[in-house]
Amino acid sequence: MSTNAESPASTTREWQLAARPVGWPKNDDFRFVERELPDLQPGEVRVRNTYISVDPYMRGRMNDVKSYIPPFQLDEAMTGGAVGEVVASRSDDLAVGDTVLHFDGWRTLAQGPAKNYRKVSKVPGLPESVFLHVLGMTGLTAYVGLLDIAEFKEGDTVFVSGAAGAVGSVVGQIARLKGAKRVIGSAGSQEKVDLLTGKYGFDAAFNYKDGDVREQLAQAAPEGIDVYFDNVGGDHLEAALKAFNNDGRAALCGMISVYNATEPQPAPRNLFETIKKGLTLRGFTVGGYYHRFDAFAAEVGEWLSKGDFVYDETVVDGIEQTRDAFLDMLRGANVGKMLVRVG
């Protein structure tokens, strides 16, 4: 058993869900509290979080409905991806000073069985925050969605919605590095469009707020698309169905356009395209693909080390700002991954 002395710090500051939102979440749907952690038990560790992740899927967890991941419980600490440093340990597997990746975000201090915390080795020249996006679940989501779900092939034309976000920006770069014929992205501002075609190497991009998505996609992909990576749903999915070539494949990763809807949204009006063109639309969540993590990390890690792969972070300072960072992310205020530096 580890002989590391327990850190005197035992007061965690955390965000709880105070009420289940209806439509867009309001400030008073959240509560910020302090509480004392219990003494460490054998096999447990205490972790001081350095970065925490806020992600679109968390909005769904605020609803009390059955899904692929349990909903947040009222009046309990919210959870999500986080990276931090072990500050106390009663485990032989993790020592004080280890950097760990885990799921106890939305708080300053996390505590639990060591098996819930995965040790990671820092990458020279990169901040540890990369384990929450390009070298973490965000990157893995992009990797398996494009390669396993959409079955990308060299020479494909790829369309990515929400392309300036954490997942979308990774998808586009993987497609380019894997030999896509053309990579097209949508985003919500001219600044993000310029980022896609400049820094991220997309061949074309458009601002979906500038006009009809179907028309803009048709102009960007005059020869049609073969793969669609969907982060938005709604009019973007409808546009992709229209633009698909025969035997096109879609990876349905997220549909942020409907997350805050209070009424059922209309389905794409052109689903007959799936029959006419022999399309495959396949939804997925990354939880069933952890076996692909080593292959993903090796390939993307090599691209990063060579300078072939780039990323952006939108970092908000202070655990007190987590709620606002989450709401801003839902509104599209982030470029790349939205993170909170705990401080």
Rank of each mutant, 00 (worst) to 15 (best):
P264Q: 05
Q265Y: 10
Q265I: 12
P266K: 11
P266H: 08
A267C: 04
P268H: 10
R269L: 13
N270Y: 05
L271H: 06
E273D: 15
T274R: 14
T274F: 13
I275Q: 13
I275E: 08
K276W: 14
K276L: 15
K277T: 10
G278F: 08
T280H: 12
R282W: 04
R282F: 03
G283K: 03
F284R: 05
F284G: 05
T285S: 11
T285G: 10
G287L: 12
G287H: 11
G288C: 08
G288H: 06
G288M: 11
Y289L: 10
H291L: 05
F293C: 00
D294T: 11
D294Y: 01
A295P: 01
F296P: 02
F296G: 01
E299D: 02
V300M: 03
V300Y: 00
E302T: 14
E302A: 14
W303P: 03
L304D: 01
L304E: 01
K306S: 07
K306M: 12
G307P: 04
G307M: 02
D308E: 14
D308P: 01
F309K: 09
F309W: 05
F309P: 01
V310W: 07
Y311V: 12
Y311D: 05
Y311R: 08
D312I: 08
D312M: 03
T314M: 03
